[in-house]
Amino acid sequence: MKGTKRSNATDWVDHVRRIRDRQDQQAFRELFEHFAPRVKGFVMRGGTDAAFAEECAQDVMATLWRKAHLFDPSRASVSTWVFTIARNRKIDLIRKQRRPEPEDLTWGPEAEPDQADVLGLQQETEELGRAIAALPEKQRNLIEKAYFGDLSHSEIAEQTGLPLGTIKSRIRLALDRLRHAMK
């Protein structure tokens, strides 16, 4: 699927909101068409057959629908959220392990993150996407193996020089605001 136009991260945020607020099936269709093949490809990198990977992708997308209210766009892009759901499912099914996750933090039904925070983070993540695409082939392969294959974490210890600092401080700030709102 190389060469297709990069999707717009902020637009996907809006799609998830439409699912959360109106159970919008059209928004789901578009998310599915974009992300399901990507999840399938990700799962197949773990060495599974296409039918199994497709089943996983269905499952991941159903989780996205069911958990739309838990997504916080001031702390993650939609691609990342989908990645985390897919990763956890892969560990469950392929490695047959439970996947302990940190306590859920949500804005709850009323409060919303600041729109400026959301925009800031989404732009930052698009920039990271461009930085990863621009990495030398060798370095990108290593990261891909670490995240999509089965390379152990000790082998990816070397930092890649990716611009994670600003993303990290943005998310830290978003967490502070969330903690304040949860009080």
Binding site: K2, K40, F42, A50, T80, A86, L128
Partner: peptide, 18 residues
Amino acid sequence: AAYEEIGGALLEEAGVAM
């Protein structure tokens, strides 16, 4: 969360048709 963004960015790169 920043490290997970790397996973999200990689997910954008390619796919296998359903």
